[in-house]
Write a protein that binds this DNA or RNA. Sequence first.
DNA 1: CTCCAGGGGGCCA
DNA 2: TGGCCCCATGGA
Length: 220
Amino acid sequence: MREIFNRLLKCFGPQYWWPADTEFEVCIGAILTQNTAWSNVEKAIANLKKENLLSPEAIIKVSDGRLKELIRPAGFYNQKAERLKAFSSFILNGGGIEKLSRLSLYDLREKLLSIKGIGKETADSMILYAFKKPIFVVDAYTKRLLFRLGKIDSEKVDYDVLREMVEVCLPSDAELFGEFHALIVRQCKEFCKKKPSCKDCSLKDMCVFYRKVAAEGSHR
DNA sequence: CTCCAGGGGGCCA
DNA sequence: TGGCCCCATGGA
């Protein structure tokens, strides 16, 4: 696992995730990017920023209709508007992100998962990139990559099983987990760009790709 | 035209 | 638990 991380870092360099100005913006982005291309999320966030709506107080106050209108480019706007409201209420009731970050990782995760519209990946993205606590974020890219590299024998592995599998292989460091996940996303986008479809990327190609990366990195 | 993105909830067997 | 369907926009 460490080897995979090292090769990715050598190839792509640090990714400086999560792209956002504030912790709250990280969380908003985590909800908006659910099954949605990040480029569309950026448009929605730009709309919210333009209207000065990137705070839990402002999200609560704005009308549902207006909120939906602004986040429309991110898709699923009916559900996501509701989720943004629910999450903002949670933050306000909890006394703000600063105060909530004093909770243990486990307690915080339980609370986030109890909010309708926040599942494991979204919760973990918030915990890692906004609350800066060491948890590894699993997504479709993670499963795809680890499957192709032979670390798992199916992409249907349980979320928490895979998360813990990665976590026990690495030091429990938020910085490291965050960089690793960002690199995995970057890797898939970069690699798939060379192929018409991700499904065509065979394990053999992937290994060849990694050998190339390793070779490029070693003779410099 | 089809496919699919940095998912999650509800329903049903 | 595990499989399916729905949600919706925009770029390739």
